[in-house]
Computed example of a mutant assay.
Amino acid sequence: MSVAFVKEESAEAAQETLLPDRPVSPHPNLVTEDGLKALQAQLQAARDAYETANAIEDVNERRRQSAGPLRDARYFTERVRTAQVMPVPEDKSVVAFGSTVTFSRDDGRVQTYRVVGEDEADPKAGSISYVSPVARALSGKAVGDLVTVGQHELEIVAIG
């Protein structure tokens, strides 16, 4: 029988609908309160997108459209489940998770970042992951301390 008369989708089409899971970091899933709220919102958005995709009548198109949201829902479910909300640091004398730190670079630039969880980090918006090289180098340091990251020297100017 010709393949044209068979309703089953091809192996190639089936492969399109089976997306690999998003990689989950091996580090503890530390988050701020806002970070947990963002994860929960992203999980809800993935669930909503999945429901919308499931309303598509064509089975092959439904599978293709639901693959991404389903993968995202699995990822965000795991991230919400493993989230460890960290309190806002009370001690402003040293850099810690949740701190906002301002430092000057050896090239004269002054930068300010908040140290946050991996999923909420956005350097362009002023936040870096606690596992990033810069955050690791700054962690536990005080105003005036110098740290070396790669070939650059950073001096902590302020901690908030």
Rank of each mutant, 00 (worst) to 15 (best):
P87N: 12
A125D: 00
Y75H: 15
I128D: 03
E12L: 10
E90Q: 14
L36H: 04
Q40F: 09
D91G: 07
G150S: 07
D119A: 01
L146S: 13
V149C: 02
G150I: 02
E51L: 13
G140L: 01
A38E: 10
G108M: 03
P69S: 08
K7R: 05
T32F: 04
P28D: 13
A49D: 10
R62P: 01
E8Q: 11
A83M: 07
L154P: 04
I56G: 00
D107F: 06
R81Y: 05
E78Y: 10
V3G: 12
G150A: 09
Q111Y: 00
P26Y: 07
F103W: 12
N29Q: 09
G117L: 01
R71Q: 15
L70R: 12
P133L: 01
A121M: 08
G160E: 15
P20Q: 07
D21L: 12
R114V: 07
Q42D: 13
E12Y: 11
V85A: 07
A83Y: 03
E155N: 06
K37N: 11
R71T: 14
E90I: 11
Y130C: 03
S104T: 15
D106Y: 06
Q84H: 06
D58W: 09
R47W: 01
T17G: 10
T82M: 07
E57N: 11
Q151S: 14
A55W: 00
A135S: 14
R22Q: 08
A121R: 08
G150L: 02
T82P: 01
V116A: 01
V95L: 03
K124N: 05
R22Y: 07
D48W: 02
E78I: 15
R62K: 14
K92G: 11
P89Y: 06
P89W: 00
V24M: 01
R105I: 00
G108L: 09
V131M: 01
R47V: 07
S127L: 10
K141M: 09
D107A: 05
V95Q: 02
V3H: 14
R79D: 03
G140E: 02
F76Y: 15
V115R: 03
D72P: 05
A11V: 12
T148Q: 15
K141G: 07
T77M: 00
P133Q: 05
G108N: 10
S10D: 02
G160T: 14
